[in-house]
């Protein structure tokens, strides 16, 4: 095992210990905090699949967060709370929309790709703002969390926490399998030299499109979790600054690694939501330069600070 794997594993163990520690300290609030962090971690892991491994800089990943959230919110609005149905819709709808967006966007590259993914997310954002039936810009409240008859009850904060943790581990597992498969080799190869991959006979476009779809579906699941966590759905989930946020988690932690996005989500969420705002209301004046410094000096992210070579 590499040290990074050890680090990732111990990080996940620490996350698993959050509820008992929080309970022992009489601070159940931290269960909420880390649950939200893990949800964003799933989103970040999914983005990393295409961004870090595939070199596809999607500036519109928040779209799937929104689609996943509305896929739970809209059935719930009509009284359908069955989680199996809701979450399946979330994943399928995200995959389908990612397929459409990807099919068009992947024709472009570089900055054009960044901007066209942004444009699609903006369209969805405006769609969310304008559809009055589902609350428009106000969004709507989720009457009840998704129900999984006979399996789990998400109303329990700790149960829900472990569901999210399991899904995070599963996402990491799926990610790991993917990138180490033949499929993953093509995706990674496409990042370093697409022309060569094509020359040796791989239809890179199709591979990239499938990766784009998988990432969208995974992020859609994160959206379904987020709406259950917040018990509220709003187009704001699809705002372009959210896409930037998720992107930053990946970079901060270290892109092209499995643990990086998780670490990035933990650090950024804690900074943005808890530490900095409690310190000064001008916290964005600190976060901004911090971002710049990370990009300039910690090129490989926080994970890059750990050595990669194998333990003896």
């Amino acid at each position: 095992m590499t040290r990074r794997t050890v680090f990732l594993a111990s990080g996940l163990v620490l996350l698993a210990l959050v509820p008992p520690i929080a309970a022992a300290l009489g601070q159940p609030f931290y269960v909420d905090v880390f649950r939200r962090i893990m949800i964003f971690a799933i989103a970040a892991v999914s983005l990393d699949l295409i961004l870090g491994y595939g070199g596809m800089v999607s500036f519109g990943h928040a779209a799937y967060l929104g689609i996943g959230a509305y896929a739970v919110g809209i059935p719930a609005y009509y009284g359908l709370h069955n989680g199996y149905v809701q979450w399946t819709i979330a994943v399928l709808a995200s995959a389908a929309i990612a397929l459409v967006i990807g099919a068009i966007s992947l024709r472009t590259s570089g900055v054009y790709f960044i901007m066209i993914t942004l444009a699609f997310t903006q369209m969805l954002y405006y769609l969310g703002v304008s559809v009055e039936e589902y609350g428009g810009d106000d969004g709507m409240r989720l009457a009840a969390r998704s129900t999984f008859a006979g399996l789990v009850d998400l109303r329990g904060g700790t149960t829900f926490y472990y569901v999210v943790l399991v899904l995070l581990v599963l996402s990491l597992g799926v990610g790991h399998r993917l990138i180490n498969s033949r499929f993953g080799m093509v995706i990674r190869g496409g990042r370093s030299n697409e022309a060569r991959m094509r020359a040796i006979g791989f239809a890179t476009f199709r591979y990239k499109l499938v990766a784009f779809m998988i990432a969208g579906a995974m992020c859609g699941l994160a959206g379904a979790l987020l709406v259950n966590h917040t018990e509220y759905v709003t187009p704001e989930f699809m705002h372009w600054t959210r896409s930037g946020d998720i992107m930053f988690m990946v970079i901060l932690g270290g892109m092209g690694t499995l643990g990086g996005p998780v670490l990035g989500a933990v650090v950024l969420r804690l900074l943005e939501d808890l530490l900095l705002p409690s310190w000064t209301e001008h916290w964005q004046a600190i976060l901004g330069p911090f971002l710049v410094l990370v990009v300039l000096f910690a090129k490989r992210g926080l994970v890059g600070l750990l050595p990669e070579r194998r333990d003896g």
């Binding site: 601070q27 159940p28 609030f29 909420d32 905090v33 939200r36 969004g139 987020l226 966590h229 917040t230 018990e231 509220y232 709003t234 704001e236 989930f237 939501d273 808890l274």
Partner: peptide, 16 residues
């Protein structure tokens, strides 16, 4: 100005 952040802050007020 975000509903989900507002909710988290409320949880912090209540539980912490």
């Amino acid at each position: 100005q975000k509903p989900d952040v507002g909710k988290q802050v409320a949880d912090e007020m209540l539980k912490r």
